[in-house]
């Protein structure tokens, strides 16, 4: 059962990461790309958590929290950066 769960979660997470990367590539505005990269970080954290649960170790737990911090700081910084330039270009 362990192998089956690993394969199923790997396939699902790979598809999800591919979708997020496609949105990063085509996303029409900067905020779409920021949001999609945030989702990509969440998917990466989910993969780390699957590894920890399946192999019964806690080595990646601090990395999981660090990924959450990086996603938070990145989103807030980009949001401020976009907000400071409002009025110049309004593509959506």
């Amino acid at each position: 059962m362990k192998e089956a769960v690993l394969v199923v979660t790997a396939v699902i997470l790979s598809l999800a990461a591919a979708g997020a990367i496609v949105r990063i590539a085509i996303g029409p505005s900067l905020l779409d790309r920021v949001l999609a990269s945030d989702v990509l970080l969440a998917i990466l954290g989910a993969a780390l958590a699957v590894d920890m649960a399946m192999n019964r170790h806690l080595n990646n737990l601090m990395l999981l929290v660090a990924i959450a911090v990086i996603g938070f700081i990145g989103s807030v910084t980009f949001a401020r950066f976009v907000a400071d330039r409002r009025g110049e270009s309004n593509d959506s």
Partner: peptide
């Protein structure tokens, strides 16, 4: 079995986010 269900449903949440993004 509970762990397997949690992992698969958690992965499906990621897939749902990707589908929603697209």
């Amino acid at each position: 079995v509970t762990t397997a269900v949690f992992l698969v449903v958690g992965a499906l949440m990621s897939l749902g986010a990707a589908v929603g993004l697209l």
